[in-house]
Design a protein around this nucleic acid. Structure first.
Lengths: 214, 214
DNA sequence: CTTGATCTTATGGTATACCATTTGACCTTA
DNA sequence: TAAGGTCAAATGGTATACCATAAGATCAAG
C-alpha cells in the first residue's frame, strides 16, 4: 500500500468527507481507476479499507456504496461515544498532570476563529472539533482507545451530527471545549470526564430533537 | 469477497488463533496461494482485512507478519476493556430485563464442562469465554459497541491473557461468569457492570503479575 | 399496450503477468 | 581474513486479462 493504494484511499476518503461522494453514491471500481489514474488493485485495496472503517458498504457482486448513517446508528454512536470519550478525557487529565497542553489550546483558538466571523466556517469547525477529540484520545497514551475512537467518530459521523446545529449551539459547543481544556490541563479526572459526558450528551440531545424518527 | 477471499480469510484467521501461525511468523502471499489453492488477489484481500483487525502487521515492501501483543498493548486492552465491557454488561442487563437468556446459560454450562474433567480443555474454555463476552455485547442491541469489542478482544488477545492461568484461576473465572449471568438475567445494571469490572480487573491482575516487564 | 423471456452490457471476482525493491549470498580486493 | 560491492533470487506492488453474475434493454407474444 505504499503509493498508489494510499493515494486512492486518501482521495476517496476526501471525496466522501467533503460530500463530493454523497451517501448512497455508487463507487464503481473502473470509474475510480480512470479518475485516479491507477489500476483496480490499489482501488480495491482502498475500498476494502474503507469498508473495514465503515465509511462504505460492500454488497457481494453489487459493488460498493457510500454508507449512510441511519438515525439508529447515530444513536448507537452517541451511546458508546459517551462512555469512550469520557474515559479518554479522564485518562488524558490524569496523564496531562496539571501542565499546559499547547496542541489543545491551539485547536480551541482556531475553533473560536472559525466561529468568529459573521458567516461561521462550519466545515472548518467540524474538522477542528474532530482533531480536538482525537488529540484528547492521544493524550491518554493508549493507542488502543485512540483506534476505537477513530473508528467510532470519524469526520462523516461528525458532519452528520453537526448538520442541524444553529449558531448558538455551535457557540455552546465551543464553550464546552474551553471547559474541557481547563479540566484536562488542571489534571482533574472527574471534572474532565463529567465535562466530556455533558458535551457528548448535549450533542446527542440536539441530534435526537432534529431527527427523531427513522 | 464472495468465496475465495472469504475462504482465505477464514483459514488464515484459524491458523493464527490456533497458533499454527505463531506471532512473528511471516505470511508470504505466494506461499499462502499455493497452500490454499487460490490466487494472490483474494489472499491479499484477506491479509488487508486481517491488518485492519490488527491480527497481522504489514510493513511496506517487507510483507506481513503475525502481530505480537506486547505487555504494553495487553495493558492497554485491559484498560479500555474494563470500560467497554462493563458498559456492555450494564446495557445488556437493562435490555435483557429480567428474563432468562438461554444463549448465555448454555455457554456457561459448556464452560463448566470444559473445566470439569481432570485435564481442563483450556482452548475450548477460551473459545467459550470469547463467545460469552460477544453474546453480552450483542445483548446491548448496539451494533457499534459489538464491533468495538470484537476489534479489541479477539481470540488471540484472550489466548495471551489466559496463557498463565492456573486451574484455580480458571475456576474463579468460571464462577465470575456465573455471577455475570445472574446479574444480567436479573436486569440489575449496576450489579452487572460491577461484576464485569471485577471480572476484567482480576484478569488484568493475573496478567500483570506474570508478565510485569517489557 | 402490457407482460414476460432473452440477451447485452456493466461490473465485481479471480487469476496472472510484469515491475520494483529488498535481502542475502558470493566474489573481489586490500 | 575482513570489508565492500555486485548480482540474483525472493517477494510485495501494480496492471490487466478473463470469468461469472446481476441489472437493464429489447423484442415478441398476447
Amino acid at each position: 500500500m505504499s503509493d498508489s493504494a494510499e493515494k486512492a484511499y486518501t482521495e476517496i476518503y476526501r471525496r466522501i468527507c467533503t460530500g463530493q461522494l454523497a451517501p448512497g453514491a455508487r463507487l464503481v471500481e473502473r470509474h475510480l481507476c480512470a479518475e485516479l489514474a491507477v489500476s483496480r488493485t490499489p482501488v480495491r485495496e482502498a475500498l476494502r479499507r474503507l469498508t473495514a472503517e465503515g465509511l462504505v458498504e460492500s454488497r457481494p457482486r453489487r459493488g460498493v456504496v457510500v454508507a449512510q448513517l441511519s438515525s439508529q446508528e447515530l444513536r448507537e454512536v452517541f451511546e458508546v461515544g459517551v462512555v469512550l470519550e469520557s474515559f479518554c478525557a479522564s485518562l488524558a487529565a490524569r496523564n496531562a498532570g496539571g501542565q499546559a497542553i499547547p496542541a489543545l489550546r491551539t485547536l480551541v483558538d482556531e475553533m473560536a476563529l472559525a466561529l468568529a466571523s459573521e458567516s461561521p466556517d462550519v466545515p472548518a469547525y467540524i474538522e477542528l472539533d474532530h482533531r480536538f477529540h482525537l488529540t484528547v484520545a492521544q493524550l491518554t497514551g493508549n493507542q488502543r482507545v485512540l483506534g476505537l475512537l477513530k473508528s467510532t467518530t470519524d469526520l462523516r459521523v461528525l458532519s452528520q451530527a453537526f448538520s442541524h446545529y444553529d449558531v448558538a449551539q455551535l457557540q455552546r459547543s465551543l464553550r464546552q471545549h474551553v471547559t474541557l481544556l481547563e479540566a484536562i490541563e488542571a489534571g482533574d479526572e472527574d471534572w474532565a470526564a463529567s465535562a466530556m459526558r455533558a458535551h457528548i450528551l448535549s450533542g446527542r440531545a440536539i441530534s435526537a430533537s432534529t431527527a427523531p424518527s427513522k
